[in-house]
Amino acid sequence: MSQTRVKPRLRVRLNSEYYKVARTVASLGIATVCEGALCPNIFTCWGEGTATFMIMGDTCTRGCRFCYVKKGVPDPLDPLEPYKVALAVSELGLDYVTLTSVDRDDLPDGGASHFARTVRAIKRLKRETIVEALIPDFQGSRRDVETVVESGLEVLAHNIETVRRLTPAVRDRRAGYEQSLSVLEHAKKANSRLVTKSSILLGLGEEWRELIEAMRDLRSVGVDILVLSQYFRPSKKQLPVAKRYRLSEFRELERKAYKLGFSYVVAHPLARTSFRAKEAYMAAVARIEAQGRGRRA
C-alpha cells in the first residue's frame, strides 16, 4: 500500500469560525496542539470554533518517536499564559476547554502548578466552563498529579499512547507504561469524581492481544474514556506506519472496550485525545451516573 493511501484526505475549507480561532490564538500568542502537531482535524475543530490549547510553550523536553511537536530546550514559562488562555476561552465562547501541554522536565514540578493556574484562571472568568487537561506524566510524581487534580478540572487525560512492549521504542525513555498507568490511577484516587481518559495510537506495530491487554490495564486503574486512533506519520523523522486499521477493526475494538467497562469509547482513525471531547465527556458522565458509580460516591 502506498504512503499516499494511508493518509487521510482533507478538503481545505476555511470558514469564518476557522478564521476567528486563528485570529484569537495568534493575537494572544497562544500555542495550539492543532498547529504544533499538524493535526488533520484542524478544519473540523477550528471550523466549529474550538481549539486545543497547548500550554507551557511549543517546545517539548521529550523525544517521543511518533510526535511532531518541536523538541529541544523550551523558553521560560509565560506567567501571563493562564490569563491569555482564559481570555481566548472567553473570546471564543467555549463551554468546554481542552488543554494540553508539552512536557517540561526542566521545571521542578513539571509544570503542574502552571496547569493548575490555567484551570483556575479559566474558571475564574467563567465558572461553568468544563475543563479537560491532557497532562504529562510528571515523571510519576504523585504530588504533581494532585496539584492538577486539585485545580478543579473535570476531566484528566493522560495517554499511554501504545502497548506495553512498544513503549520503549515509541515513547521517550523517561516515559513508562507502568508510570503512565500509575498517573491515571493516582488521579482517580485523589478525586473519585474526576473523569479520566487515555488514548492509544494504533498502527505502530502492536498485536491485537497486546491492545486488549492495554485496554484491560487502563480499566484496572479506573479509566473512564478510551480513545483509539490511527497513527499517521507526521514526517520522515517519526516512526513509519506499521499498519492501517480498517473501520471494522475499530468497531470491533470499540465493542471490546465497552465490554471491558469503559464509560465512553472514541474509536476512529482520525480521533485524537481532544477530538469531540465534549461529546465524549457528556456521554461518559451520563453513563457513569446511570450506573451510579464514581461521581456520586
Binding site: T4, K7, R9, L10, V12, P40, F232, R233, P234
Partner: peptide, 16 residues
C-alpha cells in the same frame, strides 16, 4: 470543485 491535491506528510489536502 477540487482543482488539485497536495500531499503533506500527514495528509492529502484537497484544494478547491
Amino acid at each position: 470543485e477540487v482543482i488539485a491535491e497536495i500531499e503533506i506528510e500527514k495528509a492529502v489536502l484537497e484544494i478547491e
